[in-house]
């Protein structure tokens, strides 16, 4: 994921483009693939995508800047996205937020130094019947409490360290 070894982004991009195609409609799937496999879409990759799809670099970058699940900056292996919208807000979001910050050792908007975790707020994730709720990568968790959050974080920490 966020390994510090040197990545040949041209190769990374070429592999994804080979699979997704060079059509403009493939741009977002390509960005999603790279985001998923590498935790971000850095400038070098954006540059290579622009050239492969024959679009401007500005076009690639403006698309990334639009969507909250695409980032230029590296993100952690596990991204904790706590819902900040009204039903969660009304039902204990703040306590869970503090518990998450404590358990992960990072504040909202930060990525842990070991590259394991990112913590951010997100808007409504469609879990309003189970507030407060969050996503951790592709997993949804509802009915969170400051206690349950600790267990969830511990699970991911274990998973992350096993890898």
């Amino acid at each position: 994921m966020t390994t510090r070894t040197r990545i040949d982004w041209n190769n990374v991009v070429q592999d994804v483009v080979d699979m997704r195609g060079e059509d403009h409609t493939a741009l977002i799937p390509i960005l999603q693939d790279i985001q998923r496999s590498h935790g971000h879409v850095p400038r070098e990759a954006q540059n290579a995508i622009a050239i492969a799809l024959d679009v401007s670099q500005a076009r690639v970058a403006e698309v990334i800047s639009f969507y909250s699940f695409l980032t230029e900056e590296p993100q952690g292996q596990y991204i904790f996205r706590l819902c900040q919208t009204i039903s969660c807000e009304m039902d204990g979001k703040d306590e869970v937020a503090s518990a998450l910050e404590r358990a992960l050792g990072i504040a909202f908007g930060e990525t842990s130094e070991d590259g394991l975790f990112s913590l951010e707020y997100t808007n409504c994730i469609g879990m309003c019947d189970q507030p407060p709720a969050m996503l951790v990568n592709d997993d949804a968790f509802g009915g969170l409490t400051p206690q349950s959050v600790q267990d969830i974080v511990a699970d991911y920490r274990r998973k992350g360290e096993e890898r």
């Binding site: 403009h24 977002i28 799937p29 076009r59 969507y67 909250s68 695409l70 409504c124």
Partner: peptide, 25 residues
């Protein structure tokens, strides 16, 4: 299945289409 990337406004149908075509929604 075309996966979104995190933008509420893409629920607006023409924004959704823009997004599917590889642009800002």
């Amino acid at each position: 299945i075309h996966l979104g990337s995190g933008a509420y406004v893409c629920g607006e149908e023409s924004a959704l289409i823009e997004s599917m075509e590889g642009r800002r929604g």
